[in-house]
Design a protein around this nucleic acid. Structure first.
Lengths: 151, 151
DNA sequence: AATATTTCAACATAATTTTATAGGTTTTAT
DNA sequence: ATAAAACCTATAAAATTATGTTGAAATATT
């Protein structure tokens, strides 16, 4: 499949959830709360948050009163950063990132197609930040609210 | 991962291989030959070719002298058709194609992002045909040949 | 016409990766 | 001390990837 992995999807939702709690004097958000909000197993989120931390996209505070928070402003975290952290890359095929992955690159007829498609995706995910998603999301929710009020 | 599955990659290469043998009075190409050309296990190709046949992208002839051939002209087979046959869709996330996949679509902040990215991909794969890949591939091989001749 | 060969077709199984759950340990605030 | 939370390791379940084995159909050969 060309499907985004659950890591990528859940991880982005986790990051968006943290972004919603982002303020100048950030408070840590516990994974349990994210797990409930997003209906994702807390155990699985624990695994997903590890690479996000390693790649300095989130910070953690241990112990009671601890939790996780964004390492920087939502406007400074791109979707591409998240996917890169969780999946090692934003690319559709391994060979585009790692020339040694397949020794037929030089003659492969499909290589340029996957490469071009990867560029399309990468360009898109490169310019969308958590801030952008927050705004899109807020508009969407406001519109849905208005609609439900109307009837 | 956002990775294309092996089915999608191998299947496209299989189709491109058949396209290379396409003439008006087509001769069937045996899977063994494709397997050798592409360095993919015959057994696996046999599994991959089934959905391609079901979706009328290839035709098969049984018995000695048999094999597989494109069901129509390379210019009339789009990458999207191939991916659709092999993976059920061209989309990055299930929920874009199947509204019942997740019940949080109405409030999901990331939905629009995956949807927009899927549109980008789909538009691209929708307008690339096997004929296009053949031409890109031929140019590439010609250039590589010229280069090796030069030194 | 009978036989052998070639090829697709179908089914079963193994290996690997992804997805998910479970249990325990360490750190910190109260 | 206790409870809350991140952190760590192991394992189970499911899906993907890949191989193996046998069968069926069409063709070529004798």
């Amino acid at each position: 499949m060309i499907k985004l992995s659950t890591k990528g999807r859940y991880g982005t939702r986790l990051m968006l959830n943290l972004a919603r709690h982002y303020k100048n004097d950030q408070q840590a958000v516990i994974l349990k709360s994210v797990a409930e909000d997003e209906a994702i197993s807390i155990r699985y989120l624990e695994q997903i948050v590890i690479p996000l931390k390693i790649n300095h996209l989130v910070k953690s505070i241990r112990g009671a009163g601890g939790g996780y928070m964004l390492a920087r402003k939502p406007s400074e975290i791109r979707v591409c950063d998240i996917l890169q952290a969780l999946e090692g890359s934003c690319s559709l095929v391994e060979c585009v990132e790692d020339e040694t992955f397949c020794d037929k690159i030089k003659t492969c007829g499909t290589y340029e197609i996957w490469k071009a498609a990867t560029e399309l995706l990468k360009n898109y995910f490169d310019r969308i930040t958590l801030q952008d998603i927050l705004e899109i999301s807020d508009k969407k929710l406001a519109a849905a609210k208005k609609k439900s009020k109307a009837k």
